[in-house]
Amino acid sequence: MRRYLGLLFTYRSREGTVAWLFHRISGLAIWAFLVLHVLDIYLVGDNPGAYDDILRFYASPVGRVLEVLLGAALLYHALNGLRIVIIDLWPSMAQYHKVLWRASWVIFILLGLPGAAIILLPLYRDSLTSLLHTLGIN
C-alpha cells in the first residue's frame, strides 16, 4: 500500500501517474456502487417497500455526501477516459497531453461544483428559507 501511495508523491510522479491512479480508484468505486445499484433496482419490482427504505437512505445527509463522491468519481472517470480515448485514437494529440489533463480538471470543477451544490442544497432548505425570511426577501 505504501508503495502505491508513494507513487503519488515521489519524483517520478507526473500527471500521467496521478491520472492513472485516480482512474483506477474511481473505476473500482463506480463498480462497487454498480453492484449495489443493480441490487436496489431489482427490489423495485420484487419488494417495493425495501427499495423505498434504501431510497430514504440515499436522500439522507450521509447518502447525499456519498452521492457527491459517486458523482465526482463518475465525472473524473468520464473526463479522463475521454482524454485517454483522444490520445489513443489520435496519437498526435499526445503532445497536448498536459493541456488535455488541465482542461479535464477545469471542466471537472465547472460542472462538479454546481452539481455538488444541487445534491447537497436540500439538506439546507430549512435554513435557507429562514435566512431569506430574516432578510425579508421571502
Partner: peptide
Amino acid sequence: MQISPKSKG
C-alpha cells in the same frame, strides 16, 4: 518533449 508513458492509455 518527454511524454509520460502513462499519459497514454
